[in-house]
Simulated scan of single mutants.
Amino acid sequence: MSKNKKIFSALALMGMAIFIMAFASMPAAGSKEITITNLVKESGKFDDDYVMTQGLLIKDSIQWDADKLELRFEIYDENETVLQVFHKGVQPDNFTDDVIVIVEGFFQDDGIFEAEKVMTKCPSKYEGEDMENYDGEMHKELFNDSQE
């Protein structure tokens, strides 16, 4: 094999190795999107799987410990199935009643979802409407339509 072919082969292998390491180090790349109902009903099926789910926030369930940076809350889906969530990190700014919350992480044996990422999605924020005119019922309809 010529010297140029050896160098090209070595560079190609190094490039593939870097790509594989970068892709494997991103847990979200291997996440499965599961509905809350399926996650709760078939919890054993997702042991050790990095999953993503979304639901509407139950504002009364929020427990925020700023000293420990621990956040506990509940979300529910269109079937009214409730999921308890624990997150070690910062609380999102727009945590309001019926905001869509997207969580990524692991479903634990004790029935609590341990979220590594917590994101919120608020249509009124992206449509340029002010929060004083926020329509929670419209938000629920949009959420339910996105689940179908």
Rank of each mutant, 00 (worst) to 15 (best):
L13A: 15
F107W: 13
A24V: 11
M52K: 15
T81Q: 15
D77L: 04
M14N: 07
K41L: 12
M21D: 01
K45S: 11
L39F: 12
M16W: 09
A17W: 05
I7Q: 12
K125V: 10
E114N: 15
M119N: 07
S25Q: 06
Q91Y: 03
V51K: 11
D77V: 02
N38I: 04
E74C: 00
D67H: 06
K45P: 04
S2K: 01
D130C: 01
K117D: 04
T37I: 07
Y50W: 07
I62H: 01
K41T: 09
D145G: 10
R72T: 03
V82M: 04
V82Q: 04
L39S: 08
K3C: 01
M26R: 10
P27I: 04
T120I: 10
L142R: 14
F95T: 10
H139V: 01
A17M: 13
K59P: 02
M21E: 05
D65Y: 06
D47F: 03
F8L: 15
Y134G: 00
T120W: 01
K45Q: 13
D49E: 15
K32Y: 10
A29Q: 06
N4C: 00
D65E: 12
A66M: 08
M138A: 15
K59G: 03
M21F: 15
D47R: 14
E148A: 12
T35L: 06
S124W: 14
E132G: 05
Y126I: 06
N94P: 00
K68E: 13
Q54D: 14
K125I: 12
K41W: 05
S43V: 01
V118P: 06
F46W: 15
